[in-house]
């Protein structure tokens, strides 16, 4: 009897081992991931980047309190407008100079710089701390084009990425965001989120895949937003960067932000 039990436990143990090894084998057997035909219209880049010309942006803002880029982004991505600033969801937003650049804000800077708001969004860092800290790979940097993306369905809501991001680019759904969305206005082509997950700007990965520019770029009538491939010397962003001095946020941290500012 004793021996039988031992035998049984042995077989049981091996079976459990085998069961747990199955997903590993399956993962290995899968090879190079899902195979799908890429859309021929899709835009490609080594690393997407954006240049924000604040001078053009401020001119437009003076003219008509312009919020076109923010409205376009938040509408297309079903970003709710939550009145409580502690619970806001922000993909692209405005922030004062001294808050956008707290490590280099200069109190003697020109008045128009000090008092005008800067347009902020996720920097799609070359070395993103949010990706490094995420315990489930729900946040990842897409190898093909460097966009920092999120899987809203995998996120466990630990908010480690929010502690990791030095740019405040990440928002957590403290409650159900759908309560703040107008059911008539929901963009059915993009998922809404549920409570308890983090979200942020995705550089309009879903539009790039169809050959369209990011929604904010498209919406900007002042042409203050320019996007392009930072690894391509012939790209528009590289030409702008070669032509004039630009600023990036908190470069001393080594995250390699890919959003540049002209002031």
């Amino acid at each position: 009897m004793e021996k039988d039990r031992r035998e049984f436990l042995k077989i049981g143990g091996i079976s459990v081992l085998g069961l747990s090894a199955l997903p590993v084998f399956e993962a290995l057997a899968q090879g190079q991931g899902p195979k799908a035909m890429p859309d021929p219209r899709a835009l490609q880049a080594g690393q997407w980047a954006m240049v924000v010309d604040m001078k053009k942006c401020w001119e437009e803002q003076e003219k008509r309190q312009c919020k076109d880029c923010m409205d376009a982004c938040h509408k297309i991505h079903n970003v709710p407008t939550i009145p409580d600033p502690k619970r806001e969801i922000k993909w692209i937003w405005l922030e004062e100079y001294k808050h956008a650049f707290p490590d280099q804000a200069n109190e003697y800077a020109p008045e128009h710089v000090k008092e005008s708001p800067f347009l902020l969004l996720c920097n799609h860092c070359s070395n993103p701390p949010c990706v490094q800290v995420c315990p489930t790979k729900a946040t990842f940097k897409r190898a093909e084009d460097g966009v920092v993306l999120m899987d809203f369905h995998r996120c466990i809501g630990c908010r480690y990425c929010m502690a990791g991001c030095p740019y405040g680019a990440r928002s957590f759904n403290w409650g159900d965001p759908r309560e703040y969305l107008d059911p008539q206005q929901i963009n059915q082509a993009f998922p809404t989120r549920r409570k308890g997950v983090v979200e942020k700007c995705n550089f309009c990965a879903e539009r790039l895949a169809e050959g369209l520019p990011p929604a904010c770029v498209e919406a900007c009538k002042a042409k203050a937003l320019v996007y392009g491939d930072i690894t391509d010397p012939e790209s528009e962003v590289r030409k702008i960067l070669a032509g004039q001095y630009t600023l990036r946020r908190k470069i001393a941290l080594g995250t390699g932000p890919n959003v540049y500012y002209i002031i």
Binding site: T136, I156, G157, C158, R159, F172, G196
Partner: peptide, 11 residues
């Protein structure tokens, strides 16, 4: 502390 505790095993 998790926003989605039922997804804990994703870790």
């Amino acid at each position: 502390d998790l926003g989605q505790p039922m997804r804990l095993l994703n870790v």
